[in-house]
Simulated assay, not measured.
Amino acid sequence: PLTSEQINAEIGAAIQAHTGKAVDLSRPDLTVFIELLYNEAFVYFEKIPGPGGLPVGVSGKVVSLLSGGIDSPVAAYHMLKRGCDVLFVHFHGTPFTTPASQRKAIKLVQVLTRYQASPRLYLVPFGEIQRQIMLATPAPYRVILYRRLMGRIAEEIARREGAQALVTGESLGQVASQTLENLAVIEEAVTMPILRPLIGMDKQEIVDRAQAIGTYELSILPGEDCCRLFVPSHPATRATLAEVQRIEARLDMDDLVRWGVQGAEEVTTTEERGERGEGRKGVRFLTQL
């Protein structure tokens, strides 16, 4: 058997004899790549970069909050890229909104299926919970209260699924709820780590990535989601934990969490095979927690 250096020398000499070209290791006109296996060899002339990352599942399981907008699918993709098994949770405004956001969430998960073998999605009815918050709390704090409650519900689902962290699509300063002060108050509601892979990205960077992974066109489709339901005109941008906890005391938060978790429907997106073998995406409703 020959060493790699000996193989390089022999093949290089053969190419030089055939083409009459001189060897130039600094600025070659053409680089020939060769992968040698036991009984065969692969010869190629170009390396095409892939997405990189780690095999899905090697970094543990996480729960990604999927809003249906541009950001959260990109955040989920980043965690898939880093080897996480991602389970999705979508909060919808039923009974005060149409099912449009649920359909969009299912389609987004189906797009992300190409990066994960068995994607799963929980659909959580959140409209009545939001109404309870709206009736009992001052308007500027409602978005923060919604986010804290979403975190608690998602965390309970994560615990039941054996997940180790939550994932959100928040980007620092992008909207009122994403200031440092508000993010700290929201995060205090849960004990699991909240991973925010987009935290330092600007909107155009996120849009570019959404277009690259194929979620952008779905994300910009119209659809009523709970993020726009009962939202105040002037939300608080620098909430304090003491003030938010004082307001939360007006609500039975444990009961609202149970309400959300018990209403969660699990959906699995499947790829069925037709008579000709072509792939067809399907949706299967499985169970309630």
Rank of each mutant, 00 (worst) to 15 (best):
G127T: 04
I213Q: 00
A210Y: 03
V167D: 10
R160K: 14
I144P: 15
L112A: 00
I194R: 03
I199C: 13
A154M: 13
P125G: 10
F96D: 03
P140K: 14
E217V: 03
I194E: 04
Q102R: 15
E170D: 14
E188N: 10
Q132I: 11
I144Y: 15
L221R: 10
Q178F: 10
Q211W: 06
L108D: 06
V175H: 05
R159S: 09
G214N: 09
A176D: 10
L135C: 05
E161A: 14
E181H: 14
G162R: 14
V190D: 08
S219L: 09
S219C: 08
R160L: 11
E217P: 04
K203A: 04
E155G: 10
Y146S: 09
I186K: 00
D208I: 00
V175C: 05
E128R: 14
L112I: 06
A139G: 08
D202P: 01
V190P: 04
C226W: 07
E217K: 13
R131P: 03
P119F: 08
A189C: 12
I106M: 12
A212Q: 10
I157Q: 02
E205K: 06
A176M: 12
R148T: 07
L108K: 01
T113K: 13
P197W: 13
Q204K: 04
P140I: 12
M192E: 02
V167W: 07
L123C: 08
V124T: 05
T97N: 09
A189I: 07
Q116Y: 14
R159K: 14
P140L: 14
L121R: 06
A163V: 11
F96W: 02
I129G: 01
I106R: 10
I194T: 06
L135T: 07
P125M: 01
V143I: 15
E170R: 10
M201A: 06
D225P: 01
S219R: 02
Q130A: 08
G151P: 02
L149A: 09
S118V: 06
L218A: 13
A212H: 00
Q164C: 06
N182S: 11
L221W: 00
A100T: 12
I144Q: 15
R142H: 07
G151C: 03
A139Y: 02
T137P: 11
I157G: 09
R152V: 05
P138K: 15
L218P: 13
